[in-house]
Design a protein around this nucleic acid. Sequence first.
DNA 1: CAGGATCCCGCTAGATACTG
DNA 2: CAGTATCTAGCGGGATCCTG
Lengths: 138, 138
Amino acid sequence: MEPTKAAQRAQAKAEYNAFLAACPSRRLLDRISDKWVVLILCALGGESPDAARAMRYSEISRLLAGVSQKMLTQTLRALEHDGLLTRTVTPTVPITVTYELTDLGLSLHQLTGGLRQWAQTNMDQILANREAHEAARG
Amino acid sequence: MEPTKAAQRAQAKAEYNAFLAACPSRRLLDRISDKWVVLILCALGGESPDAARAMRYSEISRLLAGVSQKMLTQTLRALEHDGLLTRTVTPTVPITVTYELTDLGLSLHQLTGGLRQWAQTNMDQILANREAHEAARG
DNA sequence: CAGGATCCCGCTAGATACTG
DNA sequence: CAGTATCTAGCGGGATCCTG
């Protein structure tokens, strides 16, 4: 009679449906389907799972070329709020703030890292597709 | 002296770096890190890899509750342009247009489907994190 | 009636300048 | 160094119109 873990997991899966606009998971999916979220997770997560490390604000800012301070701060705060990363303030002079992925953030990094990998791996194919598509219909 | 396939792959990986703002793969990553892209891929890809199927415009529109016609059309065209899906017009009355993932689109669906799954699986944890975070600092 | 193009508006991303 | 505050332009989104 005791519910198995598999049954509990199936139950949890059935609870949320990201296709429904009103479902909380839909809003969560919208949030993580964001270019800055993906890039920040890729930065903090490193190339391999064990390469994750804490980074300073300026370090992230430098790595993610093109990000504005506003979007970086805003996105970091949102990720902290959701428990995907921790923000640590060290009162040195000048002040030091580091960001580090939580276990939950690391689990999501498995996926976002895949996105980055996919983009880099299939870039040539996509470029070829675009050319073919443009040639086909001008 | 002949380059191995692994070496060629490593070379291809080194070519693109999604962290660089000027790199084409960065723009590609920005594109696929988009909520409508993710949802459309999830819709056309189905729950399991073999559940992928062609869908009509109105069918997608209904499934992705909350998407505007403009964004749906715009995103579908962009995905077609990149070769992630095909657009097929059947001259019935009234006209029928179906969209279907290509192999490349299916490969990306492996990842976006994971995002959706992750959002639905970790929703409860995130909600708990938010509450804890708000309680901690009002 | 399905499919989509166009116009208009509000919001938000992003650049710039300023502060603890 | 690590942010906040302010302003503007461009994008997202709804209403409307067009076409087969």
